[in-house]
Amino acid sequence: MTYEAFHDELRDTRWPLNNGAGSMPAVGFGTLFRDLSTTTAAVKYALESGFRHFDCAERYRNEAQIGVAFQEVFAAGKIRREDVFITTKLWNTNHRPERVRPAFEASCQRLQTDYIDCYLIHTPFAFKPGDDQDPRDVFGHVIYDGEISLLDTWRALESLVDEGRCKSIGLSDITLEALKEIVAAARIKPAVVQIEAHPYLPEWEMLEFCQQHGIILLAFAPLGHGMQPNVLEDAVLTSIARNVQKTPAQVALAWAVQRGTAFLTTSATPSRIQENFAIATLPQRAMLEIKGEISTRIRFNSVVETGVPGFIARKP
């Protein structure tokens, strides 16, 4: 069976934001590139391929190049700013409330946009405030900021929503326990939680909590980031891929949307960008197989433990 003969609507899925500020496309494009010089061309190609949800961050150091891509595409007239969902993130060194608005304004300026659809706290860990994004002591240890709580930072984000230039707010790289504390204390509830999630780290408990509170779970590394053990070589996924005449990546991404999450994939390769967008609905049997027959459980990124992003190098 092939799905290419008709337009499957799975790729058009949108999840509503719980504060009434519209909806987020489930299919998202991440902008953390190894080679920053590929940023503008990759983002333009992703827009042309159909992506309408872009995930950025001040920490990625390429918001300006993304802004150039947006403006060039918007100026051509086929895609409008309001057609695109733009997320960016507050970095760890800007957690103090007085630093939040300047960081937000700087991201808007670099991205060349008057408003942000979703602003996330990049990690729950506050680092020593300043221009150095990776503050370390003489021993190479991260210098944390013990004078600020995550709730203090959250209150500053709530103020951005009040002012209208930030449509929604959320959290990233957070544990379920820490999320529960913010949800309990927040005046404006998180609309989005971005965490690592894929068939080897399905985060079912987090997903259940998010769905109870109308929070969108946004998965990064939905294909396992090419790490070992390789999600895309899993026997269950490869078997389903053969049966539905899709790639293992397309199967994993369809699974992500069909179980109720949004996802982010990143590539600078046009064929891969197209592949990641061209997902199609899986048979219910395939969904049950992925949930019931894949037992491998592994986290590939340790950021949730330290606030320092990075995929864990493992010995073969």
Rank of each mutant, 00 (worst) to 15 (best):
F85G: 02
R101F: 02
T88V: 08
C108P: 04
Y144A: 09
H95P: 04
W154V: 12
L160Y: 01
C108H: 07
S49R: 03
L90D: 02
T153R: 06
G146D: 15
I121K: 07
A46K: 01
H141T: 14
E98F: 05
Y45Q: 13
L90T: 12
N94F: 10
D83G: 05
F139G: 14
A103M: 09
A76I: 02
E158D: 09
N94T: 10
T123L: 04
F51H: 02
G130M: 12
V84W: 00
G77S: 10
V73S: 00
L171N: 08
V43D: 01
V138F: 06
A156F: 01
I143S: 07
H53D: 01
H53G: 05
D137L: 04
E72H: 06
A64S: 11
E147R: 12
I121F: 04
Q71P: 05
I143P: 07
R52G: 00
E72D: 15
R52I: 04
A76S: 14
R110P: 03
Y144F: 12
L160K: 07
K89R: 14
G170E: 12
Y119C: 11
G130P: 07
F139T: 15
E72C: 07
R52V: 02
R81S: 03
I121E: 05
R81A: 05
R136M: 08
L111D: 00
F104E: 14
F85L: 08
L160E: 15
S159D: 13
A46M: 02
H141W: 07
D152R: 08
L120Q: 05
D117C: 07
H141I: 10
V68P: 05
A106Q: 15
I116S: 04
E63C: 03
K44A: 08
C108M: 15
D131N: 14
A75R: 15
L171T: 11
S168A: 15
C56E: 00
F85I: 13
W91R: 15
A76H: 09
D83F: 01
F51N: 00
I143A: 06
T87N: 07
Y115F: 11
G50E: 01
P129V: 14
G170N: 12
G170S: 11
R59N: 10
I79N: 00
Q109R: 15
D145C: 06
C166A: 09
N94D: 14
R136H: 11
R80K: 15
H95D: 11
T123K: 06
Y60L: 02
Q65Y: 08
E58M: 09
R99H: 13
V138C: 06
Y45D: 11
S159G: 09
H122M: 07
E105F: 05
